[in-house]
Structure formats: C-alpha cells, structure tokens
Nucleic acid binder design. Structure first.
Lengths: 144, 144
DNA sequence: TATTGTTATACTCTATAACTATA
DNA sequence: TATAGTTATAGAGTATAACAATA
C-alpha cells in the first residue's frame, strides 16, 4: 500500500493542533506572542539572519513576517543592519532587550510545557516526546 | 528540581508549531479549513455534541466556534437540533454531506501527513510519533 | 444565581498578488 | 531577468466582554 497508517496521522494531527492551541493560550504577563517567540528564539540560537532565512526557519511566507519584524524592531527586541555584500538584504539580530524578553516572558511558555511534561508524563514518555519534537520539525520541512 | 528539561519542551514546541503550520498549508481543492476539519472529525467520531462540548474537545473557547458552526450548518455539513431536556443547549451532528466532505477533502490532509511519515520516517519513528500524538493531546487538556 | 450559548469586537496569524529595489 | 523584501489586502483563528435565555 502506498500511504502509511492514516490513524497514526490523525492522532498526530490532533495532538499537534490541540497542543498548539494550548501553548498559544499560555501567554505570560508581558506579552510576546507565539510567533514573536519563535523569531526571537531563532535569532538567539542561530545568529543574525535575513528575513528570508527567518521565514524559512519558521515555515511561513516572508510576507507574513514583515509586520512582526517591524513591531519587534520598534520595541527594541531586535536590530536590523544592512547586509554589507547585498543591498537587497538586511540582517536581523536579537538585542539584549530581546534576550531579556526571551528569558522572562517567552521561556515561561516552555516552562509551562516542561512542567506539564514533568508532572504528567513518565521519564520515558518525556524522552519520547522530545524525539517526536525533532521528527515533527523535520517533517514540517519539504526537504526529504 | 521542580521543572523538567526545558530543552525537551523547546524541541516539542518547535515541532508542534512548525508542523501545525505545515499542516495548515496542506489545504486541498474543496476547502474545509483546519478548524472545520477538527469539528467535523470530532462529531463524526463522538456522536452529537453540544457547542460547549465541542469547544472543550477542540481546546477553544465556545465563542470561537459560533461563527464556524454557523458556516458549517449553512453549508449543510452539520445539523443542529434542540436538546430535548435542556432548552439552552443544542445538539450538533455531522450530516451525510459532512461525512462526504470529511472523507474527500479533509482526509487529504491526514493523507499528506501519513505519506510524509511513510516516506521519511522508519517504522519505529512512525509508531513513536503516533504515541506522541496521544501524549500531546493529553497534555493539551488541563485535567491531570 | 448559575449555566449555555450568542453577539460584538479586536488582535494574531498567515497567505496571495502586486510592487520596489538591487543584483 | 531573477532575487529579496515590502505593501496591500483578505481570510482564518482565537480571545475577552457583554448580553440573552434557560435552569
């Protein structure tokens, strides 16, 4: 047969969508939205990136980022510099303020999830879920 | 220590968000949106439900459903009946048309995922992901 | 009074199409 | 011409607050 077990896919879809919603609700006081969180975390982990690279990393269209990037820049959470070699590009980097926001607000979301995992899953299940996270990220890319 | 491994949580968040985005893009021709899909599937699997029950099952606020339910009803994909015992409630059930839409359009999304899993994951990884789906769904509930 | 649901409103997320600037 | 990015526009997704109806 061509396709794999659709039941497994259904379970994954359900889990992904529902946990995504739950995660989105978990917004601490000084709000940084979930998309903003992803962008800041990406820049924090992988140095300065162009808007296009960021969009690819986050699996969104570049147009979807323009406004969010403007917001984050105007709030001082990230800084924009012209690319020396290519005038079309700009390079985005996280600022100290951005790192602070990441630590304070943004990590709160991962802390909620970490806590929930600790409270309600066995060690084996936690490890399983970590691996699943990596697999899901891989699947979300179109590259084989 | 109180909290579990935040790194694991980060990996899970990343995977969930990115795969969720990817899944959302996978919209076949006769479009039923991802939220609509969830509602139809829920009603298909678990009989007639009230709006409140549906909202809880989908991890959204009841208010967020009103419009979508109206859309689905007007398209004939689900039917609404008064609750005999409680006049405040109504009962929603999937129609034949809804089941047809579910099969035709909606399953296409799960088929994409099933195919991606089949093509790019080992059997063990597929099974791991299925389990992870169930765990994620469990975590998205606030009930311990 | 408490519960179920709807209306009103608003903001986030995300996409497509068209445009500008640089290569 | 091709690529990187932005502007314009729109629709999906989701929430909070206020309200109506029923229990």
């Amino acid at each position: 047969m061509l396709t794999a077990d659709v039941t497994a896919a259904t379970a994954v879809r359900r889990g992904v969508i529902h946990l995504g919603r739950r995660l989105r609700q978990e917004r601490p006081a000084h709000d940084v939205t979930l998309l903003q969180l992803g962008l800041l975390a990406e820049l924090n982990d992988h140095g300065p990136l162009t808007p296009g690279q960021l969009a690819a990393a986050q699996r969104v269209q570049p147009q979807s980022l323009t406004r969010v990037l403007a917001t984050l820049t105007s709030r001082g959470l990230l800084a924009r510099a012209a690319d020396p070699g290519d005038g079309r590009r700009s390079l985005l980097a996280i600022t100290d303020g951005g790192r602070e926001a990441l630590r304070r607000d943004v990590d709160a979301r991962d802390r909620w999830l970490a806590q929930a995992m600790a409270d309600r899953l066995t060690g084996t299940e936690q490890e399983l879920l970590r691996l699943a996270g990596e697999l899901m990220d891989r699947l979300s890319t179109d590259k084989p």
